[in-house]
């Protein structure tokens, strides 16, 4: 078996007395699209924030391409090729859609600190291409602050792709979108991922989306992984069913 792209070993994080992430371990193979699901408060966002360097883990290890990344600053993790989106869209509100992507591109090409060259002409083609890829070409001149919610989600995806990442962490990529849009965005994401052989780990509430896109599914409950496997296997798992009992999303 080849070395996994991401190896997570026994990651733990507690807030006060609450164990938000309680010994999570798994491997993620290169090119895999995996969903991380679980009820509200299962620790998904906390775990994502740990992976991205926004939160410090209490314990554990995370090897990315065989290299420890736990404890690195967010920007350093991003530099290694791990990109992410946020559950609540995070874009630069007063910057145009194009500038949003440009900022990321300039950072990727290590030109963020250039003091005197006008930014207007830099990385424009690549950035516009990324916007076109997510279907935002026509919105490129508008400030992110005035974009529709669905467009913001797309913009985030374009930003996340700006550093030609190998691993994409998507935190609820379709949250807050209309059901029709959800499928389309995830299909787009999946096709981009396959085209670029990206590895994707995403959390999602919409089980339709999960079972359509994910190759493997992992279930987090009270900070621990209680099941992992192909979508159908996980769906049939009695423990998973018990956890999700009564959750509307599961009923679909």
């Amino acid at each position: 078996m080849p070395e996994p792209l991401l190896r997570v070993v026994d990651v733990r994080k507690a807030f006060g007395g609450v164990r938000a992430v309680d010994g999570v371990s798994f491997d993620l193979a290169r090119g895999e699209i995996r969903a991380l699901i679980g009820p509200n408060g299962a620790g998904k966002s906390t775990f994502f924030n740990i992976l991205a360097g926004l939160l410090r883990a209490d314990d554990g290890a995370v090897a990315y391409r065989g290299e420890e990344i736990l404890g690195l600053a967010p920007h350093a993790i991003w530099r290694r090729g791990v990109s992410r989106t946020f559950q609540i869209t995070a874009t630069f509100a007063t910057l145009s859609a194009l500038e949003n992507v440009q900022v990321a591109r300039l950072s990727h090409t290590r030109r963020s600190r250039a003091l005197l060259r006008p930014a207007g002409g830099l990385e424009v083609e690549r950035s516009l291409a990324l916007l076109a890829q997510v279907g935002l070409a026509e919105q490129s001149g508008r400030p992110a602050g005035v974009l529709a919610y669905g467009d913001l989600k797309k913009l985030e995806l374009a930003i996340a792709l700006a550093n030609d990442p190998e691993l994409l962490l998507l935190d609820e990529p379709t949250a807050g979108m209309a059901p029709a849009e959800r499928g389309a965005l995830m299909a787009l994401t999946a096709s981009i991922a396959r085209e670029r052989t990206l590895t994707v780990l995403f959390t999602e509430h919409d089980m339709d989306v999960v079972f359509t896109v994910a190759e493997r599914v992992m279930v987090l409950h009270q900070g621990r992984v209680i099941a992992e496997g192909a979508p159908d296997t996980v769906r049939a798992d009695p423990e998973v069913q018990a956890v999700y009992l009564g959750e509307a999303a599961w009923a679909t």
Binding site: P74, S83, R84, L106
Partner: peptide, 23 residues
């Protein structure tokens, strides 16, 4: 107007987003 200023505005608009695009 340079990349430096653009990035500074980005960090002003959303610190976490800026951190997670390598800044």
């Amino acid at each position: 107007r340079a990349p430096f200023g653009l990035t500074l505005r980005a960090a002003r608009d959303h610190a976490r987003r800026a951190e997670t695009v390598g800044i």
